[in-house]
Computed example of a mutant assay.
Amino acid sequence: MIPINPRGTWTLFLREIRRFLKVKMQTIITPALTAILYLMIFRYAMGERQVPGLEIDYFTFLVPGLAMMAMMQNAFANTSSSMIMGKVMGMHIYLLMAPLSAIEVVFAFLAAAVVRAVVVATVFLTVLIPFVDLSLLHPGVILLYGISGSIIMGGLGLISGMWAKDFDNVAMITNFVIMPLTFLSGVFYSVKQLPEIWQQVNTFNPFFYLTDGFRFGFLGLGDTDPFASISIVLGSVIITILACWSLWYNGWRMKE
């Protein structure tokens, strides 16, 4: 698992960065327009309504969660789209033949996914920060949960791309797994607003801890103790990386 070809890893990383930067409409323009739409809909439609039990206006509560959701979805999209495009075009075989170890390939893909997620979140927050009262109360927590969430979602995207045979397979995972879990992760509501049974159900959603911890870094409040959830998040990161490494090392569904 020790990298032996840092130049090759760096080259693959740059390829992935340049690939998503070529579609600036998706990675830069779209997040900015989405932020403006959220501003128009939630800020001016909800007014100064506060989140029950948290004593904070709804839009300020919403923004960090929306940024985290955008990071997770874009990290997933970056690796899954790269993998499925390579498979559909028959180019993935060259990546398998490249003098790169499994951990080097995984590292390059996940690092690029993190970069895309950070770019999207930066654009998103830059547009909205003038309209909300956000502070970097715990920058270390923001980085930890933001990067961890991007790695986890990038890893899931890599695994999904390896599993999928065409774009429909990836779309199925995106629409029926990733989207529901991210939308139900507490982005649009405080879990405390839910009935007791649904609060318990929500604790089994791993994305909930990522969203709640990321929000805590900005607002200093949330539905859980983010410091107690760190072990869950870091454990998920390690499991994701090991799963990606193992599957790539064995060429899972890549040689069919």
Results as ranks from 00 to 15, higher is better:
I239R: 07
S82T: 15
Y38L: 11
D133P: 06
G140A: 09
M69P: 04
S82D: 02
V105P: 04
T203S: 01
N202D: 04
V127Y: 07
L54D: 02
T79W: 10
F188K: 00
A98L: 02
F107S: 06
F208C: 10
V23Q: 05
M68I: 13
M91T: 15
G146W: 10
K165W: 14
M1D: 10
L156T: 09
T79E: 05
A112F: 03
L33G: 02
F59K: 08
V127F: 08
G235M: 04
G86D: 15
L247H: 11
K255G: 01
T211D: 11
V191A: 08
G140Q: 08
P64S: 08
Q193S: 01
A32G: 15
G186V: 08
A243R: 14
A112H: 00
N250F: 03
Q26D: 05
I129Q: 10
T174V: 05
T211S: 12
K22Y: 13
A77W: 14
G155N: 13
D212H: 07
M25P: 00
A98M: 00
L242I: 12
A121C: 06
V123F: 05
I147V: 12
A98K: 02
P31I: 00
G213W: 14
E16Q: 15
E48A: 14
R43H: 11
Y38T: 04
F59W: 13
L110T: 05
G186T: 10
A121H: 05
I232S: 00
A108D: 04
L184R: 01
L143I: 15
L234V: 06
L219P: 02
G213H: 06
F107A: 05
K192G: 00
S135L: 07
V201N: 01
G65W: 08
L194Y: 06
V114S: 03
Q73H: 14
L54I: 09
V88P: 13
Y209K: 11
L184D: 02
I197G: 00
F176E: 03
V119H: 01
S101D: 07
A111Q: 04
G90F: 06
T79N: 15
P99M: 02
F183N: 09
S148H: 04
F207D: 02
V201F: 08
I178E: 04
L242F: 14
I142V: 11
K22L: 05
A77K: 08
K165I: 15
I241K: 05
H138S: 14
I28W: 09
F227N: 05
V51Q: 11
I28T: 07
G222R: 12
T203A: 00
C244H: 12
L128D: 09
I173C: 07
F167T: 15
M1G: 04
P64I: 11
L95S: 13
K22I: 03
Y145M: 03
F214K: 12
M91C: 11
S150V: 12
R49K: 13
P52E: 11
K24Y: 14
I36P: 02
S150K: 09
S190D: 01
L184K: 01
